[in-house]
């Protein structure tokens, strides 16, 4: 996952069982989804941030933090404009009338989206591809499906390298990839999809033969060199995340945390 956001550290989060991390991530989403009012989402941010820092989300945040800021701004603007209904006080802004509930909801959605992305980043910073697929298997996803997902992750950098090689080869033959605006560049790049795709497919038969020679699809139960043990820390983590999600949902069901 080095192409992505995995951070090579030994934090508590890194050591958790992958299936506990997947369940924990889903419970974090449930907690964030419970509220739409920013005042209820802010305390949740205080709960989410320290575990993320402990899991070393820093390098990931450096890479995609700017996108998270834009997401927040865009979400605020979109919901500010498109929030349904006409209730609540409003303020004129040029041709628009900005309504207080819409602005509040927009701020809440911006915060909610960023909280969930941050939870996703925490997961990505502490989970390798093989851990993710092992977690999926533990949660009942069939082996061949989790294997295909794992193989896809591994093939991405190989195909990216192939694309770069093909691009370099075309450039050496005089293809100008820097000329023109975005439309012209798109027209230059798109035909390169054909050799990239063809090159990818040439590997298919070889890969299939290699897999079958190692017993893939034999139907015999598989064993794995790397064993992940569900420990006490995993149970405590899941218990805490379940309590958090249940508390958030209960508060919401009691009528708090929404935008009227």
């Amino acid at each position: 996952m080095s192409l992505f956001l995995y951070s090579e550290r030994g934090s508590l989060f890194h050591r958790l069982h992958p299936s506990a991390k997947i369940m924990g991530l889903l419970l974090a989403f449930v907690a964030a989804m419970a509220f739409s009012h920013p005042l209820f989402l802010l305390p949740l941010a205080l709960v989410f941030v320290p575990p993320g820092l402990a899991a070393h989300v820093g390098p990931g945040l450096k890479r995609v933090g700017w996108l998270m800021v834009i997401i927040g701004i865009m979400s605020f603007i979109l919901w500010g404009i498109f929030y349904p209904g006409s209730a609540g006080p409003s303020y004129p802004l040029g041709p628009l009338r900005l309504r207080q509930p819409a602005l509040l909801y927009g701020a809440g959605m911006a915060l909610r989206l960023n909280l969930m992305l941050y939870a996703g980043l925490t997961f990505l910073a502490s989970t390798r591809v093989e851990e993710f697929t092992a977690g999926l298997q533990r949660l009942g996803v069939p082996y061949s499906i989790s294997f295909a997902l794992s193989l896809s992750f591994r093939l991405v950098p190989i195909f990216t390298d192939t694309a770069v090689t093909i691009l370099d080869a075309q450039r050496s033959r005089g293809l100008d990839t820097e000329a023109g605006g975005p439309q012209q560049r798109l027209r230059t790049y798109l035909p390169l999809l054909v050799p990239v795709f063809a090159s990818a497919l040439r590997r298919t038969n070889l890969l299939a033969i290699a897999l079958e020679s190692k017993g893939f699809g034999s139907g015999i139960p598989r064993v794995s060199f790397r064993q992940y043990r569900f420990a006490g820390a995993d149970a405590v983590f899941l218990l805490l995340m379940s309590a958090l999600a249940a508390a958030c949902v209960t508060v919401r069901l009691l009528g708090y945390g929404g935008v009227a």
């Binding site: 996108l67 991405v156 990239v196």
Partner: peptide, 30 residues
């Protein structure tokens, strides 16, 4: 079918390899 399994992975990887560079040009960010 092993070849179909590999083809699903190859399709996914090619799709992702072309998707990822354009993540930097969002229409609606996120």
């Amino acid at each position: 079918n092993t070849r179909m399994v590999v083809l699903s992975a190859v399709s996914a990887a090619v799709y992702a390899a072309v998707l990822i560079p354009f993540k930097a040009i969002p229409v609606i960010p996120g």
